[in-house]
Design a protein around this nucleic acid. Structure first.
Lengths: 154, 154
DNA sequence: TGGTATATTTCGTTCGGCCGAACTAAATAT
DNA sequence: ATATTTAGTTCGGCCGAACGAAATATACCA
């Protein structure tokens, strides 16, 4: 039973690394299956969150040149994941929105993993799940902050 | 206080997604800082685990053509992350080993994140940490299995 | 209305990274 | 000893995706 706190912490560092790596590999496998590059994937994620973004906003958020964003949108349209729409307020603007079918295309890929995870959750009490939930949230905040620091530092 | 189990599970699905995304972004930021492509990063990870691999084994594990592996090793050598060594048993073979300084080059980038995480761990009891540890391990196993399934399925 | 500013696209170019084919060197079989 | 196979590299070509500059379309303002 008994791991000392030190041992526990050491195991956690290792498990965290392994877990992180698994997430990265999984993500890569999903992208590969969907025939999406990392940038395309990230763009879909941005669109998912915000509903719709203009080409210029995408350039800003992805760090790409405007010309590159045109090509990016072309590719996403060609693959059926996004659509161009004119902004009625300012018709120079192109509003890019995620294709409504996108979620449904991803869902079956995620589903087996989600099901397994649901099974895993069943093995925990509510109190334990609350601990896990809190940890996931807090460590995600920390990791996002670390990412931000890495990007702007120097 | 009280979230129902259903709410808890819903929150966990969301938190898991967010956490996963944070890990992916963090990884990408590290790679960018080290000037490593996804393939190069993955290769270093393989080398780290296994100590050393031949060029052919790397081709196998990365899925690249032999010619591409030559270029890959060249790039890693140029960046100071790996070294070629002749296999004394079979002198046709090239043994690629990770440069011993590699860990030290990565460490300072990981360190702030690790420190913050250590602080977070301090807020938990041993029993809670054990729950978290178990969850991280088990969900990593599930996710790796899901990755494997994604890759070979069709 | 004319003129300037802004959003996006088009065009042409460049670069990185992958591949197949041909090659060299070393091991293995005859 | 010679022929064959195996491991890895080199070369040349190709493709996706990035870029800057110029073109186009629309908005805003005097």
């Amino acid at each position: 039973m008994g791991l000392s706190r030190e041992e526990l912490l050491a195991e956690l560092r290792d498990a965290g690394r392994v877990h992180s790596n698994a997430a990265v590999m999984y993500h890569a496998a999903i992208s590969a299956r969907m025939d999406l590059s990392a940038v395309e994937e990230k763009t879909l994620d941005l669109l998912q969150r915000s509903g719709a973004l203009s080409a210029g906003e995408l350039a800003e958020l992805t760090g790409l040149a405007p010309a590159s964003v045109s090509g990016l949108i072309d590719r996403l349209e060609r693959k059926g994941f996004a659509r161009r729409g004119k902004d009625p307020q300012d018709r120079r603007r192109v509003n890019v929105e995620i294709d409504p079918g996108t979620h449904a295309r991803f869902a079956p890929l995620f589903e087996p993993f989600a099901a397994q995870l649901a099974e895993l959750y069943e093995e925990y009490t509510d109190a334990e799940l609350a601990v896990i939930l809190g940890f996931l949230r807090r460590s995600a905040v920390i990791q996002r902050e670390a990412t931000r620091a890495l990007r702007e530092e120097k």
